[in-house]
Structures are given as structure tokens and as C-alpha cells.
């Protein structure tokens, strides 16, 4: 069993929901990324989504685009991101790491070459935003050869027949985009999410993560009632962006802990941290 699947089954046994924070590798500077990854785990992350910086992140809002720009300012490339994962794995062999990014850095590296290097670094899943199911047969094959999970997006506008297609390809978990728009937007509609997730569950058996537009503990808790995992990205990036360097780690730690607490409250399994 790979790290993603075992993480979800352990959580399920404990009746808990997965917290998946997203940060961009190399933001605010490459030297901080591995430290931040360990900190996310200590604060309660179950899986880490690590963004691969790209010059033209079309599906992201301004917050994540700025984080990409900061990382690119330090020339953080795909190769550097894999080095960071290797470094992280030296002391953490448990927490799944999912790379999230855009097609062109992968195209430049080559599918097979990338998949091998990612496996060696200790990557567990990859989500390439602009590889929809129609365009990724060979890509998925290369990932599967290396036992890396291909993660796919589903959206409020995804029709049933596409979900069936995704159900055949996706491994690990699927990522349901909770609103029409880009990352960091703020108009989350819980009724919509509830209705659509019921349909997703009837077609897809692997865990469902929900993200886009989850900005605080209240939203995180509400989404956790419906999904198996909650993905929080832009809100954490904002914390990184707005913190002084000396307060950055503390601020991110507090934010992620508050999200963890919120997720655990729904099952009445309040952790000891929640009293702080």
C-alpha cells in the first residue's frame, strides 16, 4: 500500500478527515521550503501538496501566482523541487507528498524521465492542472510504471460521463474544485458542494478532497463534514506573504493548527492542541 492510500485508511480508522495544505516550493525562498514542510506536518497536515512554480499559472488566482513569481525569482525549477522532496524524505518517510503544477515544466523534462526522478525523490502523487483526462494517456502510464498516483481535478461543471472517465484513471484521491473560478476566490457554496459530492461519491470510490475557496476554520469544518480531505492553499500562502521573516513559521504553524482543530472537532475528537 502506498503512502497516500495508507494515510487515508489510518485516518478512516480514526474517524478523522485529512488536512492537505498547499505551499509553493521556493516561496518565499528555496531554503525555507523543507523547514515549512516539516512544520506543516507537526501542525497537523496529513498530506502535503507542493506547488511546482510556473511562469503562467492560468488556473490560479493572484495569491498563488505571486508565490510562483517569488519562487521563480529564486530560479526554483522542477529539479530543485525534487531535491527538496529528497531532503524532506531524509527525516520523514510517512507523510505523502503530492506535486501540483502545470504541464510545461513536465514537458520540458520528459514524462518518463520526470516520473523516475520523482519516484526516487519520494513523491507519492502528481496533479498537473492542464493535463485533463483526454490528453494524458501516456502521462498516466509513465506515472503508474513508477507507482506514483495520478491525481485529477473535478469541478462543479464536470458531467457524469467525464467523472466515469476520471474514475478509471485517478488514484490516491480526487480533488474536487469547490467553486467556479480560480484558487483563492471567496464564494464557496456549501449546498452546491454537498449536492455535487453525493454524485461524485456514487461514481468514484477513492477519497475526495475539496479545495478552492476554503479560507478559515469555519469553512474548513463545513467542508470536512462532506469530504474526506480539505485542501487549503491560498490562505496559507497569504500568511507566508504577509508575515515578517521572524514570525513566518509561528504564523503558519498557528494557522494550520487552527485548521487541524476545526477538522477534528467535527468528530468530537478534539486534540490536546485545540485548547491553546
Amino acid at each position: 500500500m502506498n503512502r497516500i492510500t495508507s494515510t487515508f485508511s489510518v485516518l478512516k480508522a480514526q474517524n478523522k478527515k485529512a488536512l492537505i495544505p498547499f505551499i509553493t516550493a521556493g516561496d518565499p525562498e528555496p531554503e525555507m521550503t523543507v523547514t515549512l514542510m516539516h512544520l506543516l506536518v507537526q501542525a497537523g497536515a496529513d498530506i502535503i501538496e507542493l506547488g511546482v512554480p510556473f511562469s503562467d499559472p492560468m488556473a490560479d488566482g493572484p495569491t498563488i501566482q505571486r508565490s510562483s513569481e517569488r519562487a521563480l525569482h529564486h530560479h526554483t525549477g522542477l529539479k530543485d523541487v525534487l531535491t527538496m522532496v529528497t531532503e524532506f524524505r531524509k527525516t520523514n518517510t510517512v507523510t505523502p507528498v503530492v506535486l501540483m503544477g502545470y504541464a510545461n515544466p513536465i514537458e520540458a523534462r520528459g514524462y518518463g524521465n520526470f516520473a523516475m526522478a520523482a519516484k526516487e525523490a519520494g513523491v507519492d502523487g502528481v496533479l498537473i492542472v492542464d493535463y485533463p483526462p483526454e490528453e494524458c494517456e501516456e502521462w498516466v502510464q509513465q506515472l503508474e510504471d513508477q507507482k506514483i498516483d495520478p491525481i485529477f481535478l473535478l469541478s462543479p461543471t464536470t458531467p457524469k460521463r467525464r467523472m466515469e472517465k476520471v474514475a478509471k484513471l485517478a488514484k490516491g484521491y480526487v480533488y474536487y474544485v469547490s467553486l467556479k473560478g480560480v484558487t483563492g476566490a471567496s464564494h464557496l457554496d456549501l449546498v452546491d458542494v454537498r449536492n455535487k459530492l453525493a454524485e461524485v461519491r456514487s461514481l468514484i470510490s477513492i477519497p475526495i478532497g475539496v479545495g478552492f475557496g476554503i479560507r478559515d476554520s469555519v469553512a474548513a469544518r463545513a467542508v470536512a463534514e462532506l469530504a474526506d480531505a480539505v485542501v487549503v492553499g491560498s490562505r496559507i500562502i497569504e500568511e507566508i506573504e504577509n508575515s515578517t521573516r521572524s514570525a513566518l513559521l509561528d504564523n503558519v504553524n498557528n494557522l494550520v493548527k487552527s485548521l487541524r482543530t476545526a477538522l477534528d472537532e467535527i468528530n468530537g475528537t478534539i486534540t490536546s492542541d485545540s485548547e491553546c
Binding site: 492560468m58 485533463p132 490528453e135 481535478l153 461543471t157 464536470t158
Partner: peptide, 12 residues
């Protein structure tokens, strides 16, 4: 060519 876009754009 092709359709290399995020899922959110596919329906449109």
C-alpha cells in the same frame, strides 16, 4: 493543439 486546460474550463 488539443485541450490542455484545467477541469474548470472543460465544460465551457
Amino acid at each position: 493543439g488539443g485541450t490542455f486546460v484545467a477541469e474548470t474550463l472543460i465544460a465551457a
